[in-house]
Design a protein around this nucleic acid. Sequence first.
DNA 1: CAAGATACGTCAATATGGCTGTCCCATCTT
DNA 2: AAGATGGGACAGCCATATTGACGTATCTTG
Lengths: 169, 169
Amino acid sequence: MAVPSSSPVTPAASPLFLREHEVRRGVELLFFGYTRLTRSIDEGLAEHGLGRAHHRALYFIARQPDLTISELLKILAITKQSLGRVLTDLGAQGLVETRAGVTDRRQKLLRLTPDGVAFEARLFDALRTSLAAAYAAAGQESVTGFWRVLEGLIPPNDRVMVAALQKDM
Amino acid sequence: MAVPSSSPVTPAASPLFLREHEVRRGVELLFFGYTRLTRSIDEGLAEHGLGRAHHRALYFIARQPDLTISELLKILAITKQSLGRVLTDLGAQGLVETRAGVTDRRQKLLRLTPDGVAFEARLFDALRTSLAAAYAAAGQESVTGFWRVLEGLIPPNDRVMVAALQKDM
DNA sequence: CAAGATACGTCAATATGGCTGTCCCATCTT
DNA sequence: AAGATGGGACAGCCATATTGACGTATCTTG
């Protein structure tokens, strides 16, 4: 996109307003990549009559056992009511269980049951297959760049939360 | 991660079954990055009483003027009925117009009106601000990696379509 | 200890964006 | 002339999200 290499007097325009092509490319690849990856687990979910919303909850509970409801709400950024139905479904299928918090008994600590662990692992396999293939095709340096750009898309406020998820990897 | 540097007898396990941490990290960053980016335009859309589905159509019509309905259906991978409602809304607001195809008059060629162009540009500004900031923070080499990994997530069948979008950039 | 804040649950109503199945019309192809 | 294709439209359904109000148990603090 026509960054004029002329006019050396004017300072380079802010990068925020340059590179429309690069931005469009990112928007499109993000759209296709994200939607195609998420589609890869729909079949597995459908076997249990569950949807993507259930998977998101399942995934983050698997990731951080003993997560509380309010922590999960922050991660998913949906309302309590929306999450409520999802957790009811997961509980009814015996995939998730809750216990009272230890230091604060108002809290509910969320955990996967053994069935939940097995089911999440099955779904994760599909994600792993797709992502690992993409990583392998792109090469390790690309993976680092992939992460860096995505991190930059997360508002600073949310980064603490994301970092917390990954702290004990 | 722990790829054991020991056991030189066993061949390295298939990369598809290694690196759970890296895969989880990718899944999470993709989730947060994608959802946060898309949220950045919700406000602008709400001013017109439109949703994300409308934006996706608007975006790809902006990207490829004179797109046909069936091409757009392939890109979005939704049903004709779902797209129909979206296009009706966009047409009613004077953002999108159609003309009969030139070589095949059954086709409808989709285009943004001047209002549509202006509105899409406004929404795109929000995306550009977010993405360009992430690009700048990550550095150009990272951007390349970001693209490569995402390309790898797109099923080979769909890559032609994505490449077509970007061919005249 | 009483008052208030917090964690969670729940009711009712609503919006959005998908889906299936069916049928129709106009136009192109053979 | 017959069939295939591009597009539109009907009816009904489902999943996932929303807001707002209210209830209960528990923790915190003056």
